[in-house]
Design a protein around this nucleic acid. Structure first.
Lengths: 315, 315
DNA sequence: TGCTTAATATACCATGATGTTATGAAATTC
DNA sequence: GAATTTCATAACATCATGGTATATTAAGCA
């Protein structure tokens, strides 16, 4: 024998609220509607679910047993609603992000950790990639969100770019590096040190070349290249090599006291770090929540950077 | 957010059977119907429950979580069906029987025990009463079934009577009673022993008087009266008193070896022991099962009595 | 008892969800 | 790239559900 689970729900409501009228109220239905459903149920089963001819409507044993199952249905329904609500409010779900490795490792990873402290049931799938890969991933729906440096006037068709930080690069070295003792670093000073180069596909790689050629450096020596941020930092901290890094990355890593920046101004690329996504596709609530969170975090980061600069100028 | 529990069931079926088509088959619905329900669900939630653009239809995390609740609904629904089936087949429920005390205690109680060995989830509510009470109880719906001695041509209006044993009374005494040694008991023999009388409302009481007057006994002495079967047997077994009991009762009690019967024929009342019930009222399956069981048991009892009598005659 | 009140059942109608068949579109498979 | 499987869409019928109005019935009370 097969029931309509809604009928079991209704039975449970009647039993639990002691009467047809109250049960109907709780269910948000009219009393006659509930009454008829009950009649149908009893007719289907061929047995009374309530003592017949009793006005405060007392359930039979059978009625009680079935109401129990109705409660189970109600419960499952409720938790299903909960699950959906959590999803719709962005408290659970999946965010698939892609981004350039250095930013991902240096800036975003700590933010993801913070995000998941607030919203632990949102799973974040992170992938590495450079512009072309990321754009393709967004278009094909493999990513919900990409984070990468981009020229704001060069945004791919059909995608939206939300800048979050100006692309400002600096020359980084280990703390305690000989050059950090000098108040003013000249081109001649840096010439003798080897360089760590990012992977060739990385935009930073082009930045490095551009910056060095702009300040007139030529024939610089590359001692290490192609590593992730972790290996770059590892080599940097254990040698007197120099490298080019986004300022945001060095800023975020400042507390660890492993690396620092040289006070040699190099030109800034005309790119902005930002979030890229497809405005057409209906993004999941979790993704939206994550995007808002990242934007807010970068806002905060930007403020901290500005304050820091003001302090340095003041000194 | 509130769901239709049937939709959750459908979702669970799709997930568990790996696809829309198979899910629909299991549910006994057409594939388009299930497909639309799924679309509606996704539309309501505003999120895909299955990876879009995948043909063997793989569920998302959200889909899996909701399917889990759907399974819970399905499970509750299944056990509700089980409960109903058990009820409808008479394997659970309530039987309210009323009957005359002596028969209830002496004959029916052991049968109830046997019945509940087969069908342990059927509850039996037993009440004592004599004809008028029982008839009134049946009419008012307080009893499902009554067991009592009745004249078959004197059945109350609107009730049906199903005879199960002829009303045959015997004179009972303790085993080892002085009279049991005699091959033939005469009126003079029994005159000196006191009598145990059933309660005055009991039909047995009238039977006792009728029987004794029919065999010519007058001025018999009543030493004890009004007790239930247990007290009657108690007094009977502990004294040389005599009493009148239905033969079925003494037969059932023979194995205990407490009481026996005198070979003094007394007249039989024109009543039959039988089941009384209202044919109009829809009896519960458990009641029907119980009635069938009791009838069968009495059939068997009747056979045993007949065999026993044959054996005795043979001797 | 008989009256009053509260609770439940019934009648009737409207509507909307569900089910069906027929058919189209898309993704896998070979 | 054709074949096949799988899912989505369209159009329509129908039945269950929900509503309002009203009758019926049990409980409570004088």
């Amino acid at each position: 024998m097969k029931f309509d689970p809604r009928h079991l729900e209704i039975l449970a409501a009647i039993v639990d609220h002691g009467g047809l009228t109250e049960g109907a109220q709780v269910l948000g239905k009219s009393q006659p509607s509930v009454s008829r459903t009950l009649s149908q149920l009893e007719a289907r089963i061929g047995a009374p679910l309530f003592q017949p001819g009793r006005r405060p409507l007392q359930p039979t044993t059978l009625g009680l047993a079935l109401a129990e199952q109705g409660r189970a249905v109600l419960q499952a329904n409720r938790t299903a609603g909960e699950i959906a609500n959590r999803y719709r409010s962005g408290h659970s779900g999946l965010v698939r992000i892609g981004g350039t490795p250095i930013f991902m490792d240096g800036v975003l990873a700590p933010m993801i950790a913070l995000f998941q402290q607030n919203v632990p049931d949102v799973r974040v799938d992170q992938s590495y990639g450079y512009a072309d890969t990321l754009i393709e991933g967004l278009r094909s729906g493999r990513f919900d969100l990409a984070i990468l440096p981009l020229q704001p006037d060069n945004v791919p068709d059909g995608l939206r770019f939300q800048p979050i930080l100006p692309g400002r690069n600096v020359i980084a070295c280990r703390t305690g590096h000989p050059l950090t003792r000098r108040r003013l670093v000249t081109l001649a000073d840096i010439a003798e040190y080897p360089w760590i180069a990012p992977p060739t596909e990385s935009p930073l790689y082009k930045d490095l070349h551009q910056a060095l050629s702009r300040i007139g450096a030529r024939d610089f020596r590359i001692s290490f290249s192609g590593g992730s941020l972790a290996s770059v930092i590892g080599v940097l901290a254990g040698s007197d090599s120099l490298t080019v890094l986004p300022y945001s990355v060095t800023f975020q890593m400042a507390p660890q006291n492993q690396i620092t920046t040289l006070s040699l101004e190099i030109g800034h690329p005309d790119r902005h770090l930002g979030l890229l996504f497809m405005p057409g596709r209906d993004t999941s609530p979790a993704t939206q929540r994550f995007r808002n969170f990242v934007v807010a975090q970068f806002e905060a980061l930007s403020n901290r950077i500005a304050r820091r600069r003001k302090e340095q100028l003041w000194r």
